[in-house]
Simulated assay, not measured.
Amino acid sequence: MALEFQDKVVLITGAGSGIGRATTIKMASLGASLALCDINYDSLSNVSKSCPSVPKHLDDVDVSSSQEVSKFVSSTIDKFGKIDHVFNCAGVNPTSYPLEDTTEEYWDKLVNTNLKGVYNVTKACIPYLKDGASFVNVSSISGIRGSAQQAIYCATKFAVIGFSKCMALELGPKGIRTNIVAPGYIDTPTNAGIVKGGEAVERMKNGNALGRLGTPEEVADVVAFLFGEASRYMNGAVVEIDGGIKMSSTTSK
């Protein structure tokens, strides 16, 4: 298979686990040079060992900090001289709470990572992107339909879609595309249903037409497509990766 991204630099946040990890490995297999960040450097280092043959830049970054993000983007430019594609994957998965039981701290944690993090990374990268570059941002099926006891998480994921569609309009005239993936029930270590196990996992499996959980690799395949030439006329699109979701209040992603 041709290495479609042989001369491309791909920046990935939340690269240390789950969908970010799978996308890192996928893009490495397609020849990309990688700028990888995660709040957990040990996880990031382990992912790096899975793709030893491609040029990489690693750093532990809290995407809610504009200073840390700006430093990471600048150091990426220092190393590679450019950024071609950006995958905004860093995020915090929900814990189910009635709204009256949530706290300001919980609000800040989700909003600052899931939404402000996308803003920080996008704003920092834009000056370095050229015609043909693109963003892929992670929303969720909970950014398309509501989920009981996940009001704050849903708010962040709905907002990612709105933010991304605006960026598609702002950046499209420059030849820079922005698209969104909305994963459903994906088998990742931080999925609340996976953590609960047992009946929660079975409910997720039964919550879509395919009767199983998705894998991070199946999301990574879509991300690679959205970065690639085959999706060159896709801009502002929301791609649901959910196996044919049924109406449910079960936790997502």
Rank of each mutant, 00 (worst) to 15 (best):
P55V: 00
A230Y: 03
K253D: 01
D242W: 07
Q150V: 04
I161N: 12
D242Y: 06
S29K: 10
A200E: 13
N93W: 02
E199S: 13
I241W: 03
D221T: 12
V118A: 07
G162M: 05
T251A: 10
S142V: 06
A230R: 15
A224I: 01
E240V: 11
V223T: 03
L226G: 02
V136D: 02
Y119T: 14
N112V: 03
I245E: 01
E229L: 02
S139Y: 06
T113V: 12
E170P: 00
D242H: 12
G214S: 10
E104R: 13
G172V: 07
S248Y: 01
A237C: 09
S70Y: 00
L34V: 12
G175V: 07
P216G: 14
D131H: 13
L226P: 01
I194Q: 06
P216W: 04
V54F: 00
I77Q: 11
K174F: 01
A168M: 09
T24C: 12
D38E: 08
G184M: 04
K56A: 04
E218D: 11
V195M: 04
A151E: 13
V160G: 12
V195A: 06
Q67A: 09
E105K: 15
I194E: 01
E218W: 01
H57K: 15
G184W: 00
F72M: 13
G91K: 15
I180R: 14
I25T: 15
C37L: 06
A168H: 10
G244F: 00
Y233L: 07
G143P: 07
I241A: 07
T122Q: 10
A15P: 10
G211I: 11
V239A: 00
G193Q: 11
S43P: 08
I245V: 13
N191T: 11
A2W: 11
K196H: 01
V238T: 14
Q149P: 00
V86D: 09
K253T: 06
E199H: 06
E199Y: 00
